[in-house]
Amino acid sequence: MKVTDNGVILDAVDLGILEALQENAKQTYTEIGRRLGVAHSTVYDRIRRLEAYGIIKKYTTVIDVEKIGLRNVTAIMTIFTDPKQSEEVAEKVSEFPEVLEVYTSLSEELLIIAKVVAEDQERLHSFIANRVAPLPGVLRIRTSIITKKFKEEAVRVRNSLADKIKLINSSGENRGRR
């Protein structure tokens, strides 16, 4: 059982549903129910509850953009900011459609780290020069253009249920061997 920051209690079935949906959101309630050993109506109710609490935020599709001819330049932009204006800079940067992810970081200086996409290097530069650099509070910017992607995964729910089932099964096997 897991209690979220919002006080929502999630049990092994909830976590199992989340794990199953992260693997394949097109699975039917019956398929998920069969996998978890619960009725499809239970799966339906639990999913509605997870949606209502905002734990399931949305269902989306992962597209291989290169296969449809969309060749983009992706870059990691590190923005050094005036600490007093860092929040405002992060909020403004988050509003740009070219920016996919925005984080703040406290290393030696207060930084904003953002993942940016553009159609090509020239458009990337133009965006940073014309939209980001002029923001009040931006001190300087370092940008690294990504040349090759080795891995990209969202944070996955790791349900201990599957592990528990395996554990029960293996202990049963061990007992049988005795």
């Binding site: 940073i128 020069a129 002029p134």
Partner: peptide
């Protein structure tokens, strides 16, 4: 205005902080 100022970069996306 600041959005029309010249911003000095050393390469693509690397802003020096000078304008």
């Amino acid at each position: 205005p600041r959005e029309k100022a010249f911003y000095f970069f050393t390469s693509i996306g690397n802003y020096t902080g000078e304008s």
